[in-house]
Simulated assay, not measured.
Amino acid sequence: MAPTCRILVMASGNGSNFQAIIDAVADGRIPNSTIVQLVVNRGKAYATTRADNSNIPWEYFNLIAHGFQAKTDKDPESIQQARNKYDAALAKKILESNQRPDLIVLAGWMYIFGEHFLEPISKEGIKIINLHPALPGKYDGANAIERAYDDFQAGKLEGNKTGIMVHYVIKEVDAGEPLMTREIEIQKGETLDQVKERIHAIEHQLIVKATARVSQEILASKAQ
């Protein structure tokens, strides 16, 4: 029996990139792979409906709702300790699961992992990749499309170009080694919503291609 790459997807919202991965696994564009689980950190994430529709098990695991951080906590040190405990607990949950993955794909996951998640996962040889709507070294962090568009409007966006990348995840936000990138030129007269729509359509293509590439590398290493 041919080996299979086991994929865990993490999402926080609508899950359109998760759907793109579901479709690509189903039609063979991500070959010899299976999505073993979805993890969400927002209770109303529509991604869970997509998982149900495809018979993919999912779990909701939230920093506040699951008791790691008090909603009213404003102390930076206390918040960091809470995040460390949450990260460690989620890593443990994944590593001890009977759905243990070979690859974790962050597809619209709106939470920044620290070393208490990344180190135990990395130590077990599980790769983590993330989709980010900017080019390497540009607009790291939240609201990347909006920030690029603001610079475009102000005449400060070099070549009028922004883009998308899929990269390996490290502790530094959006700074891991890029797997794939795609430049996107913002056109004169385009609205922010039009730019977002165009970027999201290309994101679906890029996350599928990058996931396929990494999954095939994983399968090749399993075959050795």
Results as ranks from 00 to 15, higher is better:
Gln216Cys: 04
Ile207Lys: 13
Ala212Leu: 13
Ile184Leu: 05
Glu197Ser: 14
Glu177Cys: 01
Ile199Glu: 10
Ile199Gln: 13
Gln187Arg: 12
Gly176Leu: 03
Ser215Leu: 07
Ile218Asn: 10
Glu190Ile: 01
His204Tyr: 13
Ile218Pro: 11
Glu217Pro: 02
Ile202Thr: 05
Thr211Val: 08
Ile186Asn: 00
Lys196Phe: 06
Glu185Ala: 07
Pro178Asp: 04
Gln187Met: 08
Ile199Leu: 14
Val214Arg: 01
Leu179Met: 08
Ile218His: 10
Glu217Leu: 07
Val208Pro: 13
Thr181Asp: 00
Thr191Cys: 03
Glu217Ala: 02
Pro178Leu: 01
Gly189Tyr: 07
Glu203Ser: 13
Gly189Glu: 07
Ile202Asp: 07
His204Arg: 15
Met180Val: 13
Ala201Trp: 05
Leu206Ala: 12
Lys171Cys: 02
Glu197Thr: 10
Glu217Asp: 09
Ile202Ser: 03
Gln194Trp: 13
His200Trp: 13
Glu203Gly: 10
Lys188Asn: 09
Gln216Tyr: 07
Leu219Phe: 13
Val208Met: 12
Lys171Ser: 03
Thr191Gly: 06
Gln216Asn: 04
Ile184His: 08
Gln187Gly: 04
Val173Arg: 13
Lys196Val: 00
Gly176Cys: 01
Val208Gly: 10
Val195Pro: 05
Lys171Ala: 06
Arg198Thr: 06
Thr211Met: 12
Glu177Met: 01
Val214Ile: 03
Thr191Asp: 06
His204Asn: 15
Gln187Val: 08
Ile199Ala: 11
Leu219Val: 01
Gly176His: 03
His204Glu: 14
Gln187Ala: 06
Gln216Asp: 02
Ile199Phe: 15
Lys209Gly: 05
Arg198His: 06
Ile202Tyr: 01
His200Pro: 06
Asp193Arg: 09
Asp193His: 13
Gln216Pro: 07
Leu219Asn: 04
Gln187Cys: 04
Glu190Val: 00
Leu206Gln: 15
Glu197Ala: 14
Ala175Val: 03
Ile218Gly: 11
Ile186Arg: 00
Gln216Phe: 11
Lys209Pro: 04
Val214Lys: 03
Glu177Asp: 02
Gly176Gln: 03
Asp193Tyr: 12
His200Arg: 11
Glu172Gln: 10
Gln187Ser: 04
Thr211Ala: 06
Ala212Gly: 12
Glu172Cys: 01
Ile218Ala: 04
Arg198Tyr: 09
Val173Trp: 11
Ala175Trp: 15
Lys171Trp: 10
Ile184Thr: 09
Ala201Gly: 13
Met180Lys: 15
Pro178Glu: 08
Val195Ser: 02
Arg182Ala: 02
Ile207Tyr: 14
His204Phe: 07
His200Phe: 15
Glu190Pro: 00
His204Trp: 14
Asp174His: 11
Val195Met: 05
Glu190Cys: 00
